[in-house]
């Protein structure tokens, strides 16, 4: 009797503590994920139609969708460029604001500011800069490469997206790197100094290997953000000029909600998921192996 009541109490406690999270997580992540997989094997022209089994048809049309692979390849290049530069700039900023400058707290606050603003609004802000301000400056000073609107040229539009992403997210990575840099033991740096290692050698051989745990986090975050970029892409270039900067996320959104091609759109979204899962999995696994103990 006693034991039974205790068991009931346990179940009650589980329901109370875990219940809400379990419910909302299932409603928004588990159920849609499972249902989304189910939908990719079915045919649906409009949401109102009954679903019909379609086998691999959606995946076949996704694989044959050249626009999809074009946007995927563009996204991969965007990922490579932003992961590299965001981490480089983020680490550089962290190094600057931990080197003992008197204004370093003000600098940290300022460098982090772009993170407060969402990609959509940042896109509009930078549109004003690229479309309006820089050309006006170029005309005034007679600098021809500023005069042309960058967003009108496919290559420059791509790099504009990269530049704004660096500007937006490197402050966040800086904070993570600061936490890592602070935890590097001072004795190790001192010991290397006594052994005659210059600043660059100390950075490469002492600091950086101890920073691997920070890089695991920052590379993961910047990878994931870059693969999923939508807001900034939508607001800054809207995929233009002529669809040359349409990233995979925007392609999927358009496929589903503008072309109403839900089946193919969802199959492409699942392919995106598989790619992101493999890439981030490999990244976390290999970089965890690079970690060293101080």
């Amino acid at each position: 009797m006693m034991k039974k009541r205790k068991n009931l109490g346990d179940i009650g406690n589980s329901a109370l503590f875990l219940g809400p999270t379990l419910l909302f997580f299932s409603m928004t992540v588990l159920l849609p994920f499972a249902y989304g997989l189910f939908l990719t094997f079915n045919k649906m022209d409009t949401p109102a139609d009954p679903v019909q089994f379609a086998g691999l048809l959606n995946y076949i049309s996704a694989i044959n969708d050249q626009e999809f692979w074009k946007s995927m390849w563009l996204t991969v290049r965007f990922v490579v460029a932003t992961v590299f530069f965001v981490n480089l700039v983020g680490f550089g900023l962290a190094y600057l604001v931990t080197s003992g400058l008197r204004i370093q707290n003000t600098l940290r606050t300022a460098y982090f500011t772009p993170n407060l603003i969402g990609g959509l609004v940042l896109g509009y802000i930078w549109q004003f800069i690229f479309v309006q301000s820089l050309p006006a400056l170029g005309t005034k000073l007679g600098i021809s490469w500023l005069e042309l609107g960058w967003l009108g040229d496919p290559t420059m539009a791509f790099w504009s997206l990269v530049i704004v992403t660096i500007w937006q997210t490197s402050g966040y990575m800086m904070i993570i790197f600061i936490a890592g840099l602070i935890s590097v033991p001072k004795e190790l740096i001192e010991a290397a100094k006594i052994d005659g290692a210059g600043p660059l050698k100390r950075l490469l051989n002492v600091t950086l290997p101890l920073m691997v745990p920070s890089f695991v986090v920052t590379v993961f975050l910047s990878l994931k953000n870059a693969f999923m970029v939508y807001d900034l892409n939508f607001a800054l270039t809207a995929g233009g000029p002529y669809g040359t900067t349409k990233m995979v996320s925007m392609h999927v959104v358009n496929k589903a909600f503008i072309e109403s091609n839900y089946g193919t759109g969802q199959a492409e979204a699942i392919i995106l998921f598989i790619i992101v899962a493999i890439v981030t999995g490999v990244q976390v696994y290999t970089s965890k192996k690079m970690e060293v103990q101080a």
């Binding site: 997580f25 992540v29 159920l31 249902y35 989304g36 693969f227 959104v253 969802q266 998921f273």
Partner: peptide, 24 residues
């Protein structure tokens, strides 16, 4: 499952999400 779900891009969930809670 919770931790693993963090690698699911929102784009892979949005179509069924809108389909279930909107159309259905």
């Amino acid at each position: 499952v919770l931790v693993a779900s963090m690698v699911i891009p929102f784009q892979s969930l949005m179509i069924p999400l809108i389909y279930i809670y909107g159309a259905k």
